[in-house]
Design a protein around this nucleic acid. Structure first.
Length: 488
RNA sequence: CGGGAUGUAGCUCAGUCCGGUUAGAGUGCACGUCUGGGGGGCGUGAGGCCGAUGGUUCGAAUCCAUUCAUCCCGACCA
């Protein structure tokens, strides 16, 4: 194993790949664009998933599961939707293999051609709304608040571990409502749920906003987004929530009778976050020594390392500490591997982002203390054995808060307001980050700016104040600033 | 789909230009040993149809052709 990972300043992209691989999060697989999520990476995903799932249930949603395959014809029911996804779909055309009569292994059996091809879901609006038609008849059937945890496939041209893979894991919520207002409220609520999760658990600050028509989800009337800023100054769309209007209800003929016995189309939302969040987590906190995990999402929050190796007194002290930590609901492990040396273990656990390390050596024990090292700042202190669990409980909270504060500060330092196009280009090209600027509200201007600078409008922030201004490109009047950035 | 590159040990790569016994290194792995407060030292060992196919040649990892795959940079995207 090489001793160091590529430094962030040297090659950010390679640094990211090094972290993912060396920390044991994921690997490339035999299938192009598809990754193997390794146990440690999956453990983090499980922590995230469990928490998000809890938050969904607290807001009244239930889980269900819909098929992986979607009849091809479903995709063409909603015109914009097919436009948005058709180019990147995997298609199942046959259902059987046979031995090659020429001895070349197995080949597709031409007689097993499907009557109608099946699409491997890139997202499930169509199959779900086809199903909802049967489930919804009356206003009493509404709202329908359903989520599913699933894998989806989008045949991307270029992939990156976690950030963009051909197959990825996600959740997709699909809700049906009696009124426009209620559906809009739902879409906004889920954006808030995502933002709360990102900030309180991932310690990743996000900007809540709406997408421009150009960046909107295919088939949506409004897309609410949470946008995070990564360590290289690029933005990451971390989660989206869509108000779908009546588009899917009309495409799949989903109507209900209201209280006045009048037939109406249903109003819809859909919303999702994916394993991409793991990429965001990595790029928000990690450093040149490896992964840095916020305590709330760390599979192991505390690692105890015996120095230099396990021994009776050390094992005893470790046992006492572990018991006290576990009683507080803190996950802790004791690294008893006799073959590996302390220095190796320190580096290894730092690489894996374990928030707190406790070093116990005989020298310390004689003084009744242990060494405590925090991952986020690399600071080490000596603490008395007495009350060490309370100290660590507080320390984990401090680390969680410090990571968030640090990320907020970074974002503040990398958010720039500009009022003319020269400054805009300069900031996008050199400093990066979010650029707050006026825009005339047109598709053409947005596309032109993207062409010229590669920056896109990440969102129209929810909290944007009304402010008279002039579009940085065209000089036309604008009522508020929007956030631009280069994005993943 | 355009542009660029690479396929040799589990991993990272040298060797290829200029063909010549038995294909190398580092790291990882196994065993032994001395160690032990920030990625240890020494010793021994296992591990390869040099991406695939076909050619040229007395002889191919090396030259030629074809092919497959992967990676990077673009356009597309959560």
């Amino acid at each position: 194993m090489a001793k160091a990972i590529t430094s962030r300043s040297e090659d950010y992209s390679q640094w990211y790949i090094d972290i993912v691989k060396r920390a044991g999060l994921a690997d490339n697989s035999a299938v192009r664009g598809c990754m193997v999520i390794k146990p440690y990476g999956f453990a983090i995903w499980e922590k995230m998933r469990d928490q998000i799932d809890l938050m969904f249930k607290e807001t009244g949603h239930v889980n269900a599961y819909f098929p992986l395959f979607i009849p091809k014809s479903f995709l063409s029911r909603e015109a914009e939707h097919v436009e948005g996804f058709a180019k990147e779909c995997a298609v199942v055309t046959h259902h059987r293999l046979m031995n090659d009569p020429n001895g070349g292994g197995v080949v597709v059996d031409p007689s097993a051609k499907l009557e109608e091809e099946l699409i491997v879901r890139p997202t499930s609006e169509t199959i779900i709304w086809h199903t909802y038609k049967d489930w919804i008849n009356s206003y009493r059937d509404l709202p329908l608040l359903i989520n599913q945890w699933a894998n989806v496939v989008r045949w991307e041209m270029r992939t990156r571990l976690f950030l963009r893979t051909a197959e990825f894991l996600w959740q997709e919520g699909h809700t049906a409502h009696a009124t426009r207002e209620e559906a809009v409220a739902e879409a906004e609520l889920m954006q808030k749920v995502y933002a709360d999760f990102a900030e309180q658990y991932m310690a990743m600050p996000v900007v809540k906003g709406t997408k421009t028509p150009n960046e909107r989800f295919a088939g949506a009337e409004e897309t609410y987004t949470i946008e995070a800023l990564m360590g290289d100054g690029k933005a990451l769309q971390a989660g989206t929530s869509h108000f779908l209007g009546q588009n899917f209800a009309k495409a799949f003929d989903v109507k209900f009778l209201n209280e006045n016995n009048v037939e109406e189309y249903v109003w819809a939302t859909s919303w999702g976050v994916s394993t991409r969040l793991l990429g965001g987590l990595i790029m928000t906190h990690s450093d040149d020594d490896g992964l840095v995990l916020p305590p709330k999402l760390a599979p192991t929050q505390v690692m105890i390392v015996p120095i230099p190796k396990p021994a009776v007194e050390i094992d005893e002290a470790a046992g006492i500490i572990m018991k006290a930590l576990k009683a507080k609901g803190i996950s802790v492990d004791y690294d008893t591997d006799p073959k590996k040396r302390p220095g190796f273990k320190f580096a290894e656990h730092e690489l894996k982002g374990i928030p707190v390390r406790i070093g116990i050596g005989k020298r310390d024990l004689a003084k009744g203390t242990v060494e405590i090292a925090r991952r986020d700042t690399k600071e080490k202190t000596f603490q008395p054995m007495e009350g060490v669990a309370e100290y660590i409980e507080q320390l984990l909270e401090d680390i969680q808060n410090n990571l968030f504060d640090r990320a907020v500060q970074y974002r503040a330092d990398h958010t720039t307001s500009v009022d003319n196009f020269d400054d805009f280009k300069e900031v996008i090209e050199s400093k990066g980050g979010f650029v707050s600027a006026h825009w005339d509200g047109t598709d053409e201007t947005e596309k032109k700016i993207k062409e010229l600078t590669k920056a896109t409008i990440r969102c129209i922030p929810l909290n944007a104040e009304e402010e008279e201004g002039a579009c940085i490109l065209t000089g036309k009047p604008s009522k508020r600033r929007v956030l631009f950035a280069k994005a993943y």
